[in-house]
Amino acid sequence: MKITIINGSPKARGSASELIIKAFQSKLGPNAECTVCHAALWAGPKVVETATMSDAIVLVFPLYVDSIPSHLLRLLDTQGGALSAAAPGAKVYAVVNNGFYEGRQNAVALEILRNFCARYGLTWGQGLGVGAGGVITAVPMDSWPLRPLDKALDDFADAVAKGAIGEDVFITSNLPRFVYQLSAHSEWRKLAKKHGLTTKQLYQRPAK
């Protein structure tokens, strides 16, 4: 089975999307022939060419302002017709991760993708909305805080491999909400310091 994965992170490497893709690929069986495209680095026609006659197209991206990052949205907007013509039988799946705790906050982005499929006659397979995305780049995928994601990716990979259609699934980390928030705030402060800024300076208002 041919699977085209589209990495929708704007980051060339080291993104949560990349780690999700690696974990997802490791869970697919030997019959899966996978290619990973990078929406920010690849020209649209090259993505379409790569996806030709795919059985599944899997989009993996971070949530930006409740929706799809603009560069990935542009790819879908400009190449949707060509993608549909090149892979008319493909089912479309997506994994969206966001920095808030609740995976459910990815629901609108998944709905936008379902509308994309409806516009271009593609079949929607299933979406996975992942909350507490900051944990993904912080600890190993098989560690306790990410166990819900690891388990959800088992089921998700199984669904993609079978060409199954299912309800969207929403998950978050095993970390309690307040621990996630405290850790994130501590990380922001550490990064600010690294850039020579105090915590107070992070609140500055350049527009008067």
């Binding site: 949205l73 542009r74 879908l76 509308n115 516009r119």
Partner: peptide
């Protein structure tokens, strides 16, 4: 666009 903003506005 698909029930959301256009890519240009979204950017």
């Amino acid at each position: 666009v698909f029930g959301g903003l256009s890519p240009d506005v979204k950017a």
